[in-house]
Amino acid sequence: MNRVASRVLSNAFLLIAAASVVIPFLALMSAALQPSSTLAPRLEWPSDPQWSNFAEAWTAAGFASLIRSSAIIALVVVPIALICATLAGYAMGTMRLRGKGALFAFFIAGLTLPYEAIVIPLYFDFRSIGLIDTYWAVILPLAGAFMPFGIFWMRSHFEAIPRELIEAAELDGASSFRVLTQVLLPTARPALVTLGLLNFMWAWNQFLLALILLRDPSMRTAPSGLGTFVQQYGENIPLLAAGTLIVIAPIVILYFIFQRQFISGMLQGAIK
């Protein structure tokens, strides 16, 4: 009796927990499909779903250009970050270097640094060298900011590889670079995929840097475009909801495809 009760109770509890995450999305979806003149959409599935809201929001906020900006930034940052983190993580994880500990600590300190602490000088320095309002203004700091986690992540991956594997390759006369590309990288694919996904997500979601370092509206990224869309269309809930769904769609789709990598990546990244 007691067991059944506790089972029902605990299932109900988990259901509530899941519902509290899902319901905001359903509300958003239903709002996005209301006629765009609806000031206060009711919480109900619209009788006549207005899929055209997505098209309207798409053109009103110029999402084509916003998404292009975000995509360019993310697709340039991710390879840079992956290559740099792999090289550095390889050296940190397998090679001998005096001061490695201190150097590693120097990188790891970056994990605690908030973007607020670097964005002001970045703005003024980039302005004086003409990088403001170019994609590099966001790409370069993001690549730098991804280093702490990336090195940390790749280092622990390379450390976990049995030394004998490396030594055997070296015995065969392989250079350190060949050891990396032919022996280690094949085993590193899962780690790289996960790191790449996380970096992509962080680049796509970045707001503060994009807001401050890209002032030109035609350069805006999806999140910062959404931030200004709110100011202009804050009262047009259906359009705003449609815009929000457009901005989160790429990242949510990636998440559903690669959920294992996302979850395990963020958990292990935190624990390691």
């Binding site: 005096r98 001061g99 490695k100 500990g101 201190a102 150097l103 120097f106």
Partner: peptide, 12 residues
């Protein structure tokens, strides 16, 4: 010794 020198000079 070398390590602190390296890191210090980099920071510097």
């Amino acid at each position: 010794m070398q390590r602190s020198k390296f890191v210090l000079s980099a920071l510097g």
